[in-house]
Design a protein around this nucleic acid. Sequence first.
DNA 1: CTGATTTCGACAATCATTCTCATAAGGCCT
DNA 2: AGGCCTTATGAGAATGATTGTCGAAATCAG
Lengths: 137, 137
Amino acid sequence: MTPTTPLPRMTRQRREILDVLDTRDFRSAQQWHERLRAEGSTVGLATVYRGLQALADQGEVDAVVSESGETLYRRCEAGEEHHHHLRCRVCGKAVEIDVPEFEDFAHRIAAQHSYVEISHTIELTGVCPDCAAADKG
Amino acid sequence: MTPTTPLPRMTRQRREILDVLDTRDFRSAQQWHERLRAEGSTVGLATVYRGLQALADQGEVDAVVSESGETLYRRCEAGEEHHHHLRCRVCGKAVEIDVPEFEDFAHRIAAQHSYVEISHTIELTGVCPDCAAADKG
DNA sequence: CTGATTTCGACAATCATTCTCATAAGGCCT
DNA sequence: AGGCCTTATGAGAATGATTGTCGAAATCAG
């Protein structure tokens, strides 16, 4: 069981990729590559593809597939949070739910359609356990 | 001005495609093509691609892009499944979004809080690519 | 520094999808 | 029904994103 740490090596090009990556915009591997070259880097396209995939595997970057089938990447951001509610349509009781995944969903979907400055409203309604019991009993 | 009715023609192959399409499973154009050939049809692959696109434009079929980048199709069913929209807050243009994962998500969260009879509303708004470009230019 | 591995980079290879273009239907009009 | 104009079809070439190949270069442990 040699714990042969298969750790990815931090190479110059990996660093360049991480540096150029933005946490705001989803761009394709080719677009990031272009930008890198524009900034004077000499990284190869294949390397950018491989680097982005590796970083995505590590959870350093997010990847989404656009409508046209291209894979878009952006750097992960751990910050921002806000919550939503799950409300009972009978008694009105609301539970605060924390759904970090919603944020990702919203951004992912927006990116797939090339929309920017996304905001969202999510409303979950149902019948709470108490009301459900009352209804039955 | 010429109201040149640009109506798609109902050809044998269009009919065959509609017939073979299933409302349950999302399959790729190639898979539907295979199935058609297996059933004795002689339709060409390109025709299946074109047919599916045309039908998607007409709203007869739903199309989603898989993680691997393939476009998957299935016949629309005006019922059980519902769509959400991603709307541009500038021009109002809306894109229909299909978020199968979301349905599961809603149910999971509801279950975690023992809520039943869940329904949800999702409103995503942002700025569409056209308006974003117009804003910049 | 040295060697074992991993990564790079240029380019070939894949794979889904689209395009091209000559031919074959649809649809419509009389 | 017969004809005509337009759109659809099919086969295969073309495209475009992504992945594979392989010799050379870089990383990291010892």
